[in-house]
Structure formats: structure tokens, C-alpha cells
Design a protein around this nucleic acid. Structure first.
Lengths: 335, 335
DNA sequence: CTGAAAGCGCTTACAG
DNA sequence: CTGAAAGCGCTTACAG
């Protein structure tokens, strides 16, 4: 099954390839109505579809961007990706999404693979551990936007949550309700990257502002597998926390699972606030109070910023951080 | 920033482009150790990365497949996509995932777009409404695999759940627990495509086998937005159902939301079984009994089948349906 | 208003 | 063991 090419169309329509190309690119300026019709007919009769690979090679643009998410299993990643796709779609760009699984080696492989595929730009949730690679892209003026995280001393534009504020919202809500023994749990700490760090700092600061003493035992950054064990230990403390902030949807899930298994009542035995507004939060029993990130807005901004960089070739030094504000979704999981 | 090309490497290493190409493709057979080293050094000094677009054009293969899911918001789609990606990754193939949103127009656009991008094959969750297009691909011997659904009279290989069995598992479980007023709710009926149809037929058959009369009022195929209303009406029937099968994760979510809002207890007031083992099923209160699809196996099979077709060019007439068996996950939502 | 020609960055027979 | 040349399917100045 030999696919039909532009040459076939040209032959059939009795014109040159150039003319067919002009037609396809809607440059009708100097084209007679007659040839237009002939080309049109030839195309539809042959069922011709242009070969985008060939076009890309010539034009040095694939109209495709790559996005490398840290971990596709997080709700956050999925929602942001959707927003990115929506924006790109509107601009006639395509999106290839890759999942680095929080692994710097995979991240590197994907960045190289996507660049080899000539994507016009990259949105990455950086692991933080490929500093040389990030730098190289920046040096080459390659269109790049970071999302969710920034990397110290790497001056790439990055779209981030106001992480301190997010934690402050949670702490405030707990305090207002009369709770002071507030724990926070996140998944293991990557210090090459900002947000987890910011969340813990934000936590300490929020407590201090309210004259609550910081208890280091209430701060846990652990591997996912040992969340249940860590919870158990924390709740067995002589003065256990009465409420807990789940640093992401994964931690939240583990807390809920643990509570169910141990027959802990939420919020009677333990109040919970999750960062990230998981899809089931509103109809869980009890419904879960969360701090929502404006995922759609963040994805949209990232895509728009990247497309802009791609278009006006010279990447401005708008290397700032774009911070987005979180929202507290008050529901039933706080006593 | 001019990207470095094969010609630059050749010049630097003082060899021809052919030799560089041989080197890249690991055809060292007749290459002296010396040139090998020279090429290697030139590549690393220049930081050369081959342009895959150019290679694809020449080789007429992009080592990329497309997958068009019906609706990315279903857990099923996400999980299957992951499995597909895993398999492809192992075979050095890439994956582009598109979301047709159950819209035949979008589906068509994506199929054409992906083919224009020269993907080597396609896995599609067909809407069923682009029959001509499906036929055309088959006629052209274009590598194609359907997933989740088959389309009547379109003899493409398709990977499917044993839908009748799935419903039978649910009905049986309800009946064993002593329930006979069993309702089923799915999202609106697309009759161009098999599974929803099969689920309703399977339901009827399962009831008949157990000598339970089929009550048409208990069978609802509705648009997502009117699920709450429909539930309300159904439960207001003179003899309302005492249990319900949620045809997919979306319906399940609406049922749970409705129950919470109306203070219905599950399973006391209404027993529920969901088709698709949603991530929160095991830790919801109450935990939800579901019928799980072997999503990973199904995705794996689809990918393997497609890659095989891509490799041995001639597509066998293995146009059969591959059926996968569901599993009942017994939990707390059935009385 | 339309066509001939060059070129995008590779790969691949083929010659030597 | 290595290189010159053709060609993948397009686009784009340029000439006429």
C-alpha cells in the first residue's frame, strides 16, 4: 500500500508540486480558480494526506511540545496536563506527555528523546537532579518552562503554587477550630527542588506566627511505603497530634486507608487536611477539607508562556517565578 | 543557536556522513577502531544528537504509536494507557495519547492527525461512528487495534472485557446476598459500539437465568448530567430497587455523591456494585464492592498485538476478539 | 499565475 | 574499510 504523496497529486492535477504545496498552505493569492479546483479534486480523489514528518524536517518545527511530569499518578499532574493540552490544541500544537516517575535518569532520557524528536519546547516538573542538562537548554535558548517546582540557581521560568500560603491556610483552619497539635506528612524529601522544602518551612513559620511550638516529631518526610508505620508511631507519641496535613494526594490516601483499617474516626480522632483537591474529596465519608491548587490556571499559564517563547524565538529574561494562590475547600474532615 | 548536524560531526571527525551514520546505527562490522574513536569523540565534543525527524522521513517509520482513548477521565483509560506505554517503552516505541472525549468528530481529527504524523500504528477505543475511516485503515492494512469496544461488521482485532460475565458476577453477588430488585445504570447509550449494549443484555440474561423478572424501569442509560434526577425517580418508584450496578466509574461517583447528599446509607438503604475498580474503592466508607477489569493485561495485550502487526508488515487475519475476564472484588457496599 | 531547483538531516545501496 | 550520491516528502525563494 504505497501512500500517496504530493508528487502523485501534482501529476494527477497536472500542476507542479509547488502549486500543490501552495494550495495546502492556503496561499491562494496568485492561484487561478481553475487550478485550485483541479488540485482540490486530485487531493480528494486520491485521499491524499500530507506527510507531517517531511514538513517538519523542512520547517524545523514540529508544532509539538513535550511535557515531562514528575509522577503521572498524582492528580495534580493529570489535571495540569489536561490544561496544557487544551491550550496547545487551541494553538494547533500537539503534546507528548512523559512520566519521569521522580527519577532523574528517566527524566534525562525523556528530555533527550523529546529533543531528538525535535519538539519545539518543553514543560518539565523537574526532579532537580539534572542541573547540567537544564543549564545546557537555557544556554541554547531552548524554550523551557518549569512547573510545580523550581531548581535553585537555575534561572528558568517556573510556574508554582504559593506553597507557604497553602500550608498557612491549613494551619490557620486547624487553629481556628481549636487544634494546636498539628502534624505534617509529605513523601520523601528531595532537597534539590523547592516545594516540599517550602511546605515544611511554611509549616514552621505558620506555627511560630501563632506562637505554637514546633515539635519535630510532628514533621515527617517519608517514603510512601512507610507512611502507615510512621502514622502509627506518630499517633503513639505521648502527646500525639490531633490533626494532620497530608502533603499530597498520595499521603492523603494512605492516611484514609490507615484510619479505616485502624478504625480511627475522622475528624473525631484525627482531623485531616489534604493538599490537592482530590476528585473524591467532596463525596468521601466524611468529605475531606483540602487546599486546592489552581491546576487549570497553572497548566494554562505554563503552556501560554512556553508557546510565547517558541514564537518569538528570543527567550525574554522573564525568568521569574509565577506564583499561584491556593484555596481552602472547607468540608467535614476537621473537628 | 544552530543545532549540530551529522555533517558537522563528519567534518570534525574527518570522515563521511555515511560513516557517522554507520556508527550511530552500531554497524561497526567494517569500521576501524580508529575511526570509531574519532567519530565518538567528535560526537561528544559537539554534543551531537541525531535528528529523529530526518531519520523517520527516510526510514518511513517513526517508532511511535498513537492511542485514542474514548474518555481520559475514566480510570480505565488511564490504567490501560499506562500499560500500553510500559510495553512500548520496552520495545523502544513511543506513545502519543489523545482523548476523543467520546466525540466522533474529535476521533476522526485525531486519527487523521496521527496518521499525518506517520505513527506506525493505532490503538483506538472506537466511538463507532467513523465506520468509513475504520474500513479505510483496514483496507490499507494499516496496523490497528480496537480496545474496550468493537464495532459491528468492522473486522479489526479488539481487546475487550467479557462484559456479560462482568454483569453476571455483579448480579450473582446481589442475588446470593438475598437481593432481587437489581437496577443497572450506565451513561448514555452508544449503539454503534458493543460494550454498553452487552452489559445491558448481560444484565437481562443474568436475571432471567435466576428467574427474576426484568423490570425495564430498573434499566437506565442516561446522560451524566441527569444521573441524580434519574436516581431520585428510580428510588421513588412504588417498588424501588434495593441494589444497583454502576456501569462505570463515572456513574459510581454520581451514586455516591447522591447517597451522601440524600443521606442514604450504603449498603443499608441501597447496595452498590461498581464496574471498574476505582482507586478509592478500598478505602471509601463503606469500601465499595466492584467488578475489576484486568486493565494492565488488556493494555499489554493491545500493545503487543499492535507491535506485532507493525513488525511483520502483513497483518494476519487474527481479526478475532480477545476477551478478558473480570474479577469480583468483594467489599462492604452490598448488604 | 506557475514551475524548476535546492535543501531540510538523515540512511542506504553501491562502488572502490 | 570508507565515501559519493540518491532519495525520503515536503517548502520556499526565485525566475519567468
Amino acid at each position: 500500500m504505497k501512500p500517496v504523496t504530493m508528487a502523485d497529486v501534482a501529476r494527477k492535477a497536472q500542476v507542479s508540486k509547488s502549486t500543490v504545496s501552495q494550495y495546502l498552505n492556503k496561499r491562494y493569492d496568485y492561484m487561478s480558480e481553475q487550478t485550485k479546483v483541479r488540485v482540490e479534486e486530485a487531493i480528494s480523489e486520491l485521499g491524499y494526506q500530507p506527510n507531517i514528518v517531511a514538513r517538519s524536517l523542512k520547517q524545523k518545527s514540529t508544532k509539538t511540545i513535550g511535557v515531562i511530569v514528575a509522577n503521572i499518578l498524582h492528580t495534580f499532574s493529570t489535571e495540569v496536563s489536561r490544561a496544557i493540552e487544551d491550550v496547545c490544541h487551541g494553538e494547533d500544537f500537539h503534546t507528548i506527555i512523559c512520566n519521569a516517575d521522580d527519577d532523574p535518569v528517566k527524566e534525562k532520557r525523556y528530555i533527550e528523546m523529546l529533543r531528538a524528536k525535535q519538539v519545539d519546547g518543553l514543560i518539565v516538573f523537574p526532579t532537580g537532579d539534572n542541573r547540567d542538562l537544564y543549564k545546557k537548554m537555557l544556554d541554547e535558548q531552548y524554550p523551557l518552562v518549569f512547573l510545580d517546582r523550581s531548581v535553585p540557581d537555575i534561572p528558568a521560568s517556573s510556574i508554582m503554587l504559593n506553597n507557604e500560603k497553602a500550608i498557612e491556610l491549613a494551619v490557620d483552619h486547624f487553629v481556628q477550630k481549636g487544634n494546636e497539635r498539628i502534624a505534617i506528612m509529605t513523601t520523601s524529601f528531595i532537597d534539590k527542588v523547592t516545594p516540599r522544602y517550602e511546605r515544611v518551612e511554611g509549616y514552621k513559620k505558620a506555627l511560630r506566627n501563632r506562637n505554637i511550638e514546633v515539635n519535630e516529631e510532628y514533621i515527617q518526610c517519608v517514603d510512601p511505603e512507610i507512611i502507615p508505620l510512621t502514622l502509627k508511631q506518630m499517633l503513639a507519641l505521648s502527646t500525639p497530634p490531633d490533626c494532620i496535613i497530608a502533603g499530597n494526594d498520595f499521603v492523603l490516601k494512605e492516611i484514609l486507608r490507615f484510619s479505616k483499617q485502624e478504625s480511627l474516626s475522622i475528624p473525631e480522632d484525627l482531623s485531616v487536611i489534604g493538599i490537592d483537591d482530590v476528585p473524591y474529596a467532596s463525596f468521601y465519608n466524611p468529605s475531606i477539607t483540602t487546599v486546592a491548587q489552581p491546576t487549570f490556571k497553572m497548566g494554562k499559564m505554563a503552556a501560554e508562556l512556553l508557546l510565547e517563547k517558541i514564537k518569538k524565538k528570543q527567550v525574554q529574561d522573564d525568568l521569574s517565578e509565577y506564583r499561584f494562590e491556593p484555596t481552602l475547600m472547607v468540608r467535614e474532615s476537621v473537628n
